[in-house]
Design a protein around this nucleic acid. Structure first.
Length: 586
RNA sequence: GUGACAGUAGCUCAGUUGGAUAGAGCAGCGGUCUUCUAAACCGCAGGUCUUGGGUUCGAAUCCCAACUGUCACGCCA
């Protein structure tokens, strides 16, 4: 056996092979799992259910398997020890020699990336996320989609996929009638420089909305502005374009600070001229039917969607989001050759996506198209401490920009308190990374399917499973290398096998990186990666406190430097996948 | 009414897809800085995994039924 990148994968393969040789059959699944550290690194549980089904003694079967493993010399005892335990578990324990060899073999972020890049090589995946509405500022409600979408995109890229990040902004709809009316009514100059133009637009929209409701005459004027826009009136079209520009400038400001980028920004307006084809194809396939004046799709085989319609054209003849979403799938199929489309949208829209996916499945089948895999990455809402939708004291939405500013400001106060001697500019930089990292990590570290309760205390708490804790671990590793006057990765040649309990725990934890990444990818849940990185940081902190790195004995120093360097690589790679910037000092 | 998601320590949450004695962080108590950053580490204490059935060698995890909370369900997205 050799030192392989993913020992769990290797062990599964040879166990299956031996099972076949010993006549257990090809369907035998070793069920290799990460084991409790007390028992080893991995445990194979598969013998128990198999023996049960075949009415055999599980320990006997396990013994047979082990004999086959040893006879075939598939395992090198100096690299991995195995044993049978309990009712028939097979335990595998990697030896210090294996752990050291692994560290020597896989050294840099590039080494990891190279191993990972084969998993999704060449697949085209569209990630649809963030999707704010124009003419409104981004608020807390946009955090989750934005941050989770970016993390998933980075993860898929790391696995070798060709990712198209598409921001499906809400840039079309009836609200523009009110906004355009209000702009004209107030005489607001869209072309002039304004300090916070998007906030102005949001205020104007509210004024327009109020006016619309207050008098019938105004309502008519508002509707008239909307009709003019829809019919391509040059003045209103230009105003609408300017509104989009103003909005995008403000969005871009936030995206840049968060290190988020998009390959495409194809909003609802982009699909305006692509909906006719949808009506035609769905009608032609007899998928859509008229109901109460609207064009709708029912799914008779589905308990609820047999009667709950998927409305693709409103009774007034206009399209809606169902229509554009269908057109969007077709566009992504035809333009991006999408193998997979991932929608990072909150859970309240689950019904919509279920109907969308069901409809697409039948529609694509009917047209003989290969349907991309469709996934709704749903997430819970962010609530206030009362368990209801989050609001400011004044009852408005909490603006993302203001949230970011406060997080950074609070972080600045803490850095200044902890490390007053650092230059001001560096403290500002640290505050930016820590504050924005805290917002981001709070969200990512939580299982996305549940709602979460927003509180400043929780978001900016710098203890436990939080961004500052992880960033601090990184900063301390850099500090060791500064003190040792070495670059990370240097001076490892004389390393001998890991020996102390803390070294062993840390080394084992480092090997778990790929498992965590795979888990995060397969479930599209970044919190698996967060939990792993937190545990790794914990293992490092314990090691750091118990085992001094810069010591006189060259073997000990070298192997500990090696652990520091690998921990740094894994932490930085992982944090970067989550979108966090790391720091050399904090 | 139909459905989705959730219910785990006082609080906020994990729990590697059914495995061995359910884990963290806060909060509480007690220790550790003349030694690489104490934003840290170590220890103690804290549990009827909402309830009741069922499947299984084995259940927080799967199935059924309740209960509680949030949300969605015909022209917003």
């Amino acid at each position: 056996m050799e030192i392989c990148f993913d020992p769990a994968y290797y062990l599964t393969a040879i166990l299956s092979e031996c099972a076949h040789q010993t006549g257990l059959g090809e369907t035998f699944d070793p069920m290799l799992r990460a084991a409790d550290p007390r028992f080893g690194d991995f445990q194979a549980n598969g013998v128990l259910p198999w023996a049960k089904q075949e009415k055999r003694n599980p320990r006997e079967v396990a013994t047979q398997l082990l004999e086959a493993l040893n006879a075939g010399s598939k395992l090198d005892e100096s690299l991995v020890e195995c044993s049978i335990a309990g009712p028939g578990f097979i335990n595998f324990k990697l030896t210090p020699k294996f752990l050291l060899g692994w560290m020597q073999h896989y050294r840099t972020a590039e080494d990891f990336a190279k191993q990972a890049a084969s998993f999704e090589q060449g697949r085209h995946i569209v990630v649809d996320f963030s999707a704010p509405n124009t003419a409104k500022q981004m608020h807390v409600g946009h955090i989750r989609s934005t941050v989770i979408g970016e993390a998933i995109s980075r993860l898929l890229e790391f696995f070798g996929a060709e990712v198209v990040r598409d921001n499906h902004i809400g840039d079309w709809g009836t609200q523009f009638g009110m906004l355009i009316w209000a702009i004209k009514d107030s005489g607001y100059d869209l072309d002039a420089e304004h300090k916070d133009a998007l906030a102005d637009l949001e205020g104007l929209y509210k004024a327009g909305n109020a006016a619309y409701k207050s008098s019938e005459a105004t309502a008519d004027s508002v509707r008239n502005e909307l009709v003019k826009l829809q019919n391509g009136d040059p003045e209103n079209t230009r105003m609408w374009e300017r509104i989009t520009e103003i909005s995008w400038v403000a969005f871009k400001d936030i995206y840049d600070r968060l290190g988020i980028r998009f390959d495409e920004v194809l909003g609802e307006s982009f699909y305006r001229d692509k909906v006719e084809r949808i009506y035609e194809e769905l009608t032609e396939l007899n998928l859509a039917e008229e109901s109460q004046g609207a064009l709708v799709v029912f799914h008779p085989e589905h308990k609820r969607f047999a009667t709950q319609p998927f409305i693709v054209r409103k009774a007034d003849g206009a399209s809606n989001y169902a229509t554009t979403d269908l057109a969007t799938i077709l566009y992504r199929y035809e333009t991006f050759n999408a193998d997979e489309v991932i929608y990072v949208v909150d859970a309240r829209q689950s019904d919509h996506f279920e109907q969308l996916f069901l409809t697409t499945q039948k529609w694509f089948a009917g047209m003989n198209r290969v349907q991309p895999k469709l996934a709704h990455v749903s997430f819970g809402t962010i609530n206030g401490e009362d368990g209801k939708a989050i609001k400011t004291k004044e009852g408005g939405s909490v603006k993302l920009k203001e949230l970011m500013a406060e997080a950074v400001e609070r972080s600045y106060g803490i850095v200044t308190e902890k490390n007053p001697d650092l230059p001001e500019a560096e403290r500002r930089e640290i505050a930016e990374a820590v504050g924005l990292g805290a917002i981001r990590y709070t969200d990512l570290s939580q299982n996305r399917s549940s709602d979460y309760i927003f509180s400043w205390e929780k978001m900016l708490s710098f203890e436990g499973n939080t961004a500052p804790y992880l960033l601090y671990a990184v900063a301390r590793i850099y500090s060791i290398f500064r003190k040792a006057e070495l670059a990370p990765g240097a001076s490892e040649e004389t390393a001998d096998a890991f020996s102390t309990e803390e070294e062993m725990t840390l080394a084992r934890k480092l090997l778990g990186f790929t498992t965590a990444l795979k888990q995060a990818r397969s479930d599209l849940r970044p919190h698996f990666l967060c939990s792993y990185l937190y545990e790794l940081s914990g293992a490092f902190s314990s090691f750091y406190n118990a085992n001094k790195v810069i010591v006189d004995e060259p073997e000990i120093k070298a192997r500990r430097l090696m652990l520091c360097s690998r921990t740094l690589t894994v932490l930085e790679t992982g944090l970067n996948l989550l979108g966090l910037k790391t720091l050399q000092r904090m």
